[in-house]
Design a protein around this nucleic acid. Structure first.
Lengths: 134, 134
DNA sequence: ATTAGTGCAAACACTTTGCACGGGT
DNA sequence: ACCCGTGCAAAGTGTTTGCACTAAT
């Protein structure tokens, strides 16, 4: 991982490595706050700024995707495979959705003469867990 | 319009009517701030609270949709026809996209056992105007 | 040695809320 | 007269920034 970071001209600081490890191991699509809380357990002196800076850096390298599915806060995803997301209005969890029927349209690069760089398909509703709890 | 509001148990206050008129006449998908600025021209004493309250009310009745496409702020849309949106990273404009190829999937009500209440397809990139300005 | 990255705190931006007043019904 | 809705101001939440210090290369 150190090599991969250096290759991009980034320093492999412990905080940064930990953030990447965390993000690539979770499917929870954590918010910046949640990432911060997690990292703080291992690096009690870590600051929000470091988390935010790291997220900006990783967004710029394309290693992290920022999701706009949660209206209250940005959520982050390191799973770079093309996939969609489901947001539960109740528990606020973000689920991955690997929907083969929509994989075709990922190739779209232009629409109405606009240059399309990214396509996000967001589903919103009540997740299977919350549905059963009612 | 007054009737339609009353039918839903809502009072047809001048501010509210003006907000609805504005929202249903524009394709700009304004933010709360922009709605506020516009309404303030006709009602200089109007407050943010009124705009926000009205937007919450209209979201609850289903007359207004809240878009999460702009990562910096919520955008609002009164066009209830099924359609998608394109967001320009440069000028921040939100364009309507009537994409016949994706109209089919609007019927999805369940995915991975989750109850799907809403589907949002967001395109992000550089719009045709900004593309030409470079 | 150089320069990217960290940590701290303060500032920003957007959104929400409590409450008293006023206007619609 | 009732009560929803407004206006004001203040607070809440999430995000960003400036700067001096530290550490990775």
């Amino acid at each position: 991982m150190k090599e991969q970071l250096n290759k991009k001209g980034l320093k492999a600081t412990p905080q940064r490595v930990e953030i990447i490890k965390f993000l690539s191991s979770t499917k929870l699509h954590p918010s910046a706050e949640e990432i911060y809380s997690y990292i703080k357990e291992k690096f009690p002196t870590v600051s929000f700024a470091t988390v935010y800076n790291t997220l900006v850096t990783l967004k710029n390298t394309g290693d992290v995707k920022e999701l706009s599915i949660d209206p209250e806060r940005k959520r982050f995803d390191m799973d770079l495979r093309p996939h969609n997301h489901f947001f539960c209005k109740k528990c606020k969890k973000v689920y991955d959705v690997y929907d083969s029927s929509t994989e075709g349209e990922i190739k779209i690069e232009k629409i109405d003469e606009h240059i399309v760089e990214e396509i996000s398909l967001y589903y919103t509703g009540i997740c299977k867990d919350c549905k059963n709890k009612i």
